[in-house]
Design a protein around this nucleic acid. Structure first.
Lengths: 206, 206
DNA sequence: GTATCATGCAAGCGCTTGCTTGCGCGTGAC
DNA sequence: GTCACGCGCAAGCAAGCGCTTGCATGATAC
């Protein structure tokens, strides 16, 4: 009989280690020796559970993808927008946190993008999900008259994602450029975006 | 007597090749054999001109940095802002073009950031210059009453850079997400930002 | 004509990479 | 008790890495 408990523990440690090392060093830099060492496991054991380094990292990324989707799903946007400020901000805050947490990995993924077509779905999935959700929400908000008619939902989505993107990735590289911390800076950016898409005062009052 | 003409030609080809391969493959992936092959030069010749791979890539990045600064300097912003729309848009357009052109290299640089401290100045310099210039311009515009008082120049700068950043890097990875092309999408984002920082109509008319 | 110098070519060094082989140990199942 | 199974350990393989050496070649300078 298979001792699932032990095997799972080893596989688990390997997956976690693979994810961590991949995040820090990229695919090329994530050597099987480093991964095995971080997992506290012999390198041979790695190859007993996974046919190749490619398969191991693929499995690790798939698990990370699943976790990210689950985390993002826990921050839902209402289907019927009522108050942009009150609804969008908590959602964006949660997404930014998830994004910043994965920031190191996102950066390495960006770099080796063309070399890792097999992983595109896992790497891009969460971002695509956020973009789709935001777009749908903003389109509904526009229909409900909560957004100035001229503001294209696609463009607003891009702008929000751009802010998420840069505030999730850049702070470690440009410390000092985010006075008050990345979170506060992000909040100020959202202020401007929301100001830019708010309906004219006249339209609201009348 | 040294034949500068030939030697320069070889060094030139090596620098160009090093830059290209580094952009595509990163530092680890840019092997001396690949660089020499792309330059159409024997690998030994590479080491006759540069003490090490690290020095060669450093020189190539320094040249790229100089070129980028020169290109960005050709798109000046006035010291005394008069018309945000008319002045900011051409500048941003030019920066976006420069950014998109360097996009591949920026992505690899992002990934290996922590591993290449020696290159930070070369890699980050142009972006820092753009941020400083934008910040100065926006602060002056705020003083001139061209920007709504609530809009923090730092936040506006961040938002503009975020839009530049994402529109320069993401299109190759998410084709189809930029209907009408990245340039048009970027323009729409700038629309929203400018709308978000414009002074209230009442303030202007009175 | 001869000296000089950039370059090409063949070969190889020591090291790291992904991955394999063979063997021995300990634990749990029956 | 013994058998199966997960694992560690030592060793090694072919390939690729950065970098070096020695020698031949061809163009230029004087």
């Amino acid at each position: 009989m298979i001792r699932w408990q032990e095997m799972d523990a080893t596989v688990e440690r390997l997956l976690t280690a693979a994810r961590e090392v991949f995040d820090e060093e990229g695919f090329r830099g994530a050597t099987t020796r480093k991964i095995a060492a971080r997992a506290g496991v012999n390198e041979v054991t790695l190859f007993r559970h996974f046919a190749s380094k490619e398969e191991l990292i693929g499995a690790a990324l798939a698990r990370g993808h699943a976790e990210a989707v689950a985390r993002l799903g826990a921050a839902p946007l209402p289907e019927e927008p009522a108050d942009l400020d009150a609804e969008l901000r908590p959602y964006l805050r949660m997404v930014l946190q998830a994004f910043a947490g994965a920031g190191r990995g996102v950066r390495t993924a960006l770099a080796e993008w063309e070399h890792l077509p097999a992983y595109h779905a896992w790497l891009l999935g969460p971002s695509e999900a956020v973009m789709d959700r935001l777009r749908r929400y903003l389109a509904a908000a526009a229909r409900a008259g909560l957004v100035r008619p001229g503001a294209d939902p696609d463009a607003v989505t891009h702008l929000l994602v751009a802010a998420l993107f840069s505030h999730g990735l850049l702070p470690p590289m440009m410390p000092g450029r985010f006075p008050g911390g990345p979170a506060a800076s992000f909040e100020r950016c959202v202020d401007i975006i929301l100001d830019g898409i708010r309906p004219e005062p006249e339209e609201v009052s009348r």
